[in-house]
């Protein structure tokens, strides 16, 4: 940039490598964000619209919930007007969506409480469990997947593959029952139900969320391990690995620098696909372990016909999925830049 005599590219890059690289990385993050936003904004609009249309489709009314089955038509009409349900559909949607953007999800039909607050209370529980489940799932899946790939076609590989197949066919509630049976009823190691916030101490908090997180993590472990094993085995067959062996690079360096980096992408992408299933499975695990979390709130409000609460739950779950996918995409862009091309 400064000298005209020097060959253009190489010295310029050598002169300001950190600044250029930082700018480059920032640009890539922004590009990923922009591309993801272009996909997720329409997704969000469509999903919220479908969610909102649920009330009209269901034919449920706050009057039914509050006044019971034998309410007079006038009373029903009065309550519906009070909730603004006599206005045109699109006006209602606009009003609801406007509130949504301000974090206001309306009030519950059953007890008139603020839905955002209720969901916020449940999310603390659910996100603790889900984060721990993800940590367990990624760590265990990583260890199992890489071990199987490094010891491929030996008995270690077969044992791991068998174990992974076994846990992949166990639905979350079956795992939950097995864990309750083994650790809570049998060994009395962990409490079988309930939740203690982190503020009351780290150990009781961990004790209460370990079993639900384990139950939730099995699916993640299976998927990460399986995907990682496949892509690592495929990466080891590539010519550049042969080339690296020929050049005399150490096995550790080949694994960390070449194989792992190329094999990690699909496993990470699976993680993004797995998250909605994790949110869904929390409905079941929270039921098994008696946690008053997000999933339990979803189940309870759906069963009592509390439409605004259900809508709030669905919107929050969509936001969670979208944000999580965004994070996965950012990490993916960092680890395997090639994954950003041609998508």
């Amino acid at each position: 940039m400064t000298t005209t005599l020097a060959p253009p590219a190489a010295p310029a890059r050598r002169r300001g490598p950190t600044a250029a690289r930082a700018r480059h990385a920032l640009g890539r993050v922004l590009a990923t964000l922009a591309r993801s936003a272009a996909i997720f904004v329409p997704v969000f609009l469509v999903a919220t619209f479908v969610t909102f249309a649920l009330r009209s489709l269901s034919g449920l009314s706050p009057a039914r919930v509050q006044l019971g089955e034998d309410a007079t038509p006038e009373a029903i009409h009065r309550v519906e007007a009070q909730w603004g349900l006599d206005r045109p559909f699109l006006v209602q949607y606009g009003h609801w969506f406007g509130g949504l953007l301000h974090g206001d999800l309306g009030t519950s039909w059953t007890n008139g409480a603020d839905i955002s607050t209720l969901i916020g209370l449940g999310l603390g529980v659910s996100l603790s469990v889900a984060s721990l489940a993800l940590v367990i799932g990624v760590l265990a899946g990583f260890v199992l997947g890489t071990t199987a790939a490094l010891r491929q076609t030996t008995w270690v590989d077969r044992a791991i593959t068998g174990f992974v197949t076994l846990i992949s066919v166990m639905p979350a509630f079956v795992v939950g029952i097995v864990l309750v049976e083994a650790f809570a009823v049998g060994l009395h190691v962990f409490p079988s139900a309930g939740y203690v916030p982190m503020a009351q101490g780290l150990t009781p908090w961990l004790e209460h969320i370990t079993l639900p997180a384990l139950a939730l993590s099995f699916d993640v472990v299976a998927d990460v391990a399986r995907q990682l094993r496949t892509s690592l085995v495929a990466a080891y067959r590539e010519n550049y690995v042969t080339g690296a062996v020929v050049r005399g690079l150490s096995p550790q360096r080949i694994f960390l620098g070449h194989v792992l980096r190329n094999g990690l992408g699909p496993a990470l992408a699976t993680l993004g696909l797995k998250f909605p299933a994790l949110v869904g499975a929390s409905v079941v695990t929270e039921w098994v372990f008696g946690l008053q979390g997000f999933g339990r709130f979803a189940n309870d409000s759906a069963q009592s016909g509390d439409v605004p609460a259900v809508q709030g739950v669905l919107v929050v779950s969509i936001v969670l999925v979208v944000v999580f996918n965004l994070l996965v995409n950012l990490v993916l862009a960092r680890v395997t830049p090639a994954s950003q091309r041609g998508v």
Partner: peptide, 23 residues
């Protein structure tokens, strides 16, 4: 493609629970 993106983003167990209860 956009519809498929939307469907993938919905946690289906949660949605199934909601839809059964409401419909």
């Amino acid at each position: 493609l956009r519809v498929v993106d939307t469907l993938v983003a919905l946690p289906f167990l949660l949605f199934a629970v909601a839809v059964i209860a409401l419909l």
